[in-house]
Design a protein around this nucleic acid. Structure first.
Length: 853
RNA sequence: GCGGGCGUGGCGGAAUUGGCAGACGCACUGGAUUUAGGUUCCAGCGGCCUCGGCCGUGGGGGUUCAAGUCCCCCCGCCCGCACCA
């Protein structure tokens, strides 16, 4: 018995594909184009199973589309700037560039071992100056177009490391490495004006009909368009006014307090005269900056002593608090509190003994007795206790209140977005330098185009706290491009989402002197199918949508939406293991033994934990390289596609990999050791087919139809099951009857073609073993004959009162009367009816007969 | 806290979108062949059962001739929340 030699085979086919350049993309106007893109990887060091899954899914799409006759673009590159490179520099003394490019070469080799149908000639890394020079020019164009600007914003500042921390690096108010209490600091930073496109980004979501609904909903919520009113409260004894935003101006008569964010200018002003308030504000700032942290903590406040005057009720004063649940980033950073109709306000009012005035009456409630208990009433109803608004519905009252505010000069209706402008400044070394020069005389001046790119200095030092670019002895000192006086470079670099917001368009012409060759971009864009993790559902995808619009406005490209189709894959998970001392163990450190799991080294008992996303911290990782070395890429790919639907989490199991491996060997035997010799390739269908031959022939056509349909719909697990169903049918054939050897060849060739996108190496070998000319990956996708998909006879279920009592065989499309009488004649039906006369019989042709007694 | 998603045998999952629940696998059980090689082949495999059936798609209610699928309420788990990428 000859075993399939995957090592020899995979290496050979990969070389053949590369030598013949079969996956090279080119503009070909005689065919429809198809651009398949998987989210490009961050070069962290080695590929992980998430990559294997992502790139397997994309490769199935790419190979399938190629077989369907499309001109396919399927490129690969590296999202190469980012924090981990700097951490490596700090921890191991490796330069970020060296670390990054070495990782890239390791990971490139790993990806190549997967046999992906990529056009490697288009590869680039975003840290290549030839890449990032273009985004520096884009930024300058954005500046000119008013899409980039500078303003002050709060950051998490680690006083020991002298650096800005990400929210995830702040743990319990302290820096993750230094342990020092994190300060909120205001820094002057660069922003991109994504809010300028808020309405368009929101409205265009409706047209992205090949995106998952959940992603569209997430983006919709993220943009968070709301209409309400801006209300300007007069302050007792002061000239200035307090501006708040509310989505519920209809509840203004129920207002019993106002509240400021701890970061509000007025709060800071009051704190200068009130040390206890200053202490309260400091405490709020320590509690964490993320929206999650702020909104889930206990509501607390501090009375500033200021009193706001109600715009509609003369003489009514509202206390002004500083409250920890008011976000500075949303609206105006100040609110009015209506405890009756907002849960947060209610919690706050109860805690501080503030009055609760209901102003929205639920339908059917009695205005004399209706009162608010522990729950605020947030549904629709009729306004009451509200002067001129009484009797209106919530929506009319919003409009009426807005109009009255405007008439009084105390506010106006307003639309507000949750979406904030994109802060792109990072105080880091390993990123694209922001091409601006700061001059005392001339202000912030863009670097002239002839001086681009602004390159990172190679000789930065990472051994002391702070931004290496800022410390560099010479790099930042330059002459002002306008007045030639002494000036300094901007030492901030771009957020790495900047690079990933346009790489997809660069792949159309990756070596061009300008960012985009219009001909190539116009031909290939948009991406027809984009594939990646849901974790990017909002930020990366929204930034890319914005960036594409900004590039269009600046004349770079002609489209708005970068990704016509989107697919978000699930995570790769694995069981977790803990040894006797509670320490995490990797799957390779344990073994299964008689139903339990023990440690490989000493047989100590191991506790099995639930399956979780593979992560270094829990050690539940399986290295793709080891799997590919042990089983081959095809087995790994097939397992990735089997069982779990691609959008759901996949559990990696040893048994599942074995199953995929056994299946491929089984298929190999089917092709190389058929029960009878196969007729030569191209033999015409014989006139006579045995019943078995006919069944196998039909099974092949059904498999073509089913696999095609499921591949289109991203149901790859079902497509794999259908391929297996075909191999089961072919294994049944003994080949001796009329036409059976022919049917077997037809079935095996079909099987090979269908398996091609999933397990491309073994499929090439099968094609060769079947004696066919040419490369399998260049064969057209097979077509199913619709006439062979339907059977002459069908099995129809027979129910009595909706319960299954048996089945009957009928000719296809039999008359309803025939179906009915056949069903009534069924012994089980007679038994169930027990002499009763059926009241009604429902016949669904070719499916079911339901006898209602 | 807010937002999003998911619950079907021991396990992963399937089910022409309202029409035979459990396709295809994994695990397991019995048998055959080979037996030191990540074998292969055959049979069985939701639960209960008086062998005629009864119960079963997280739980409870509803619509319908018919519900995993549609509607209402509840429970559990997972993910995101703006400087990780």
């Amino acid at each position: 018995m000859s075993r399939y030699n995957f090592r020899e085979s995979e290496a050979r086919w990969q070389e053949v594909w590369e030598q013949r350049g079969v996956f090279r993309a080119s503009i070909d106007r005689s065919r429809p184009k198809y651009y398949v893109l998987e989210m490009f990887p961050y070069p962290s060091g080695r590929i992980h199973m998430g990559h294997v899954r992502n790139y397997t899914l994309g490769d199935v799409v790419a190979r399938h589309r190629r077989a369907l006759g499309y001109s396919v673009l399927h490129p690969m590159g590296w999202d190469a700037f980012g924090l981990p490179a700097e951490n490596a520099a700090l921890e191991r003394g490796v330069h970020p560039a060296k670390w990054t490019y070495e990782n890239i070469s390791t990971m490139r080799a790993q990806l190549k071992s997967m046999g992906l149908s990529l056009d490697w000639s288009r590869e680039f890394a975003t840290c290549d100056p030839d890449y990032y020079r273009h985004e520096q020019k884009m930024f300058i164009d954005f500046l000119k177009a008013g899409l980039a600007y500078r303003k002050e914003a709060f950051v998490n500042w680690d006083p020991v490391e002298q650096t800005v921390l990400a929210n995830e690096q702040v743990i319990d108010g302290r820096g993750w490495r230094s342990g020092a209490p994190v300060e909120k600091r205001k820094l002057s930073q660069w922003f991109l004006k994504i809010t300028a496109f808020a309405d368009d980004l929101l409205d265009a979501l409706q047209r992205l009909d090949r995106w998952p609904d959940k992603v569209r909903v997430m983006q919709e919520k993220w943009i968070g368009r709301s209409s309400g009113a801006e209300i300007r409260f007069a302050l007792k004894g002061r000239e200035d006014r307090l501006t708040v935003y509310s989505t519920r101006p209809d509840t203004l008569f129920g207002a019993t307090f106002c509240a400021l964010s701890p970061d509000h200018a007025l709060a800071e002003e009051c704190a200068r005269k009130d040390p206890a308030l200053a202490a309260f504000i400091a405490e709020c700032r320590r509690a964490g900056t993320s929206e999650a942290a702020i909104e889930s903590q206990e509501k607390r406040g501090y009375d500033t002593g200021l009193r706001a005057l109600h715009p509609f009720i003369p003489g009514k004063e509202l206390p002004v608090y500083v409250a920890n649940f008011v976000l500075i980033e949303y609206g105006t950073g100040a609110i009015f509190g209506c405890p009756g109709h907002d849960q947060r306000d209610l919690d706050f009012a109860r805690k501080y003994g503030l009055p609760v005035i209901p102003v929205v009456l639920p339908p059917g409630a009695d205005p004399k007795t209706f009162a608010i208990g522990d729950e605020a009433y947030t549904e629709d109803g009729t306004i009451f206790n509200s002067g001129f608004l009484d009797g209106l519905g919530v929506e009319e009252a919003k409009r009426a209140a807005g109009a009255r505010l405007e008439a009084l000069g105390a506010g106006k209706p307003q639309t507000v977005y949750r979406l904030r402008d994109w802060l792109v400044s990072r105080q880091r070394y390993w990123g694209c330098p922001i091409p601006v020069i700061h001059c005392e005389q001339c202000g912030a001046v863009p670097v002239p185009e002839k001086d681009l790119p602004v390159m990172l200095p190679k000789d930065a030092s990472f051994d002391r706290p702070g931004n290496p670019l800022a410390h560099h002895p010479t790099w930042k000192h330059v002459a002002c491009p306008v007045c030639s006086g002494a000036a300094e470079r901007e030492t901030d670099t771009f957020d790495t989402f900047f690079e990933s917001s346009w790489y997809f368009a660069r792949f159309c012409d990756p070596k061009g002197k300008t960012a985009f060759a219009r001909e190539a971009v116009d031909y290939w864009m948009p991406v027809d199918q984009y594939i990646g993790g849901v974790e990017h559902a909002v930020l990366h995808l929204l930034y890319s949508r914005f960036f594409t619009r900004a590039l269009r406005q600046c004349g770079y490209i002609g489209i708005d939406e970068p990704f016509a189709g989107l697919f978000t894959q699930g995570m790769v998970c694995h069981e977790t293991y803990r040894g006797p001392d509670g320490e995490w163990l990797t799957p390779s450190e344990v073994k299964r033994e008689a139903g339990t799991v023990v440690r490989l080294s000493d047989g100590a008992p191991v506790t099995i934990g639930r399956s979780e996303k593979m992560s270094k911290s829990k050690k539940n990782v399986v290295d793709p390289t080891e799997i590919i070395a042990a089983y081959g890429a095809d087995t790994a790919r097939l397992f990735m596609l089997s069982d779990s639907p691609p959008e759901r989490d996949l559990e990696w199991t040893e048994a599942g990999v074995d199953g995929a491996w056994r299946y491929l060997n089984r298929v190999w035997r089917l092709v190389t050791e058929p029960p009878v010799p196969l007729p030569p390739p191209g033999t015409p269908k014989p006139a006579e087919l045995s019943a078995e031959a006919e069944a196998a022939w039909r099974a092949a056509h059904k498999a073509i139809a089913a696999v095609s349909e499921h591949l289109e719909a991203f149901r790859f697990n079902v497509a794999v099951a259908q391929v297996r169903t075909l191999s089961n049918a072919l294994a049944e054939l003994d080949g001796t009857g009329p036409g059976e050897a022919w049917a077997l060849r037809f079935g095996l060739e079909t099987l090979t073609l269908l398996l091609g996108p999933m397990a491309p190496h073994i499929a090439e070998s099968m094609w060769e073993a079947l004696g066919r000319e040419g490369l399998l990956c260049e064969q057209p996708w097979p077509k199913a004959d619709p006439a062979l998909l339907v059977e002459d006879r069908v099995t129809v279920a027979v129910q009595v009162n909706g319960k299954l009592r048996g089945t009957i065989e009928l000719p296809r499309d039999a008359a309803n009367d025939d179906a009915q009488s056949a069903a009534l004649a069924h012994p089980a039906v007679q038994r169930s009816l027990d002499g009763k006369t059926p009241r009604k019989v429902i016949v669904v042709p070719n499916r079911i007969v339901n006898v209602v007694a």
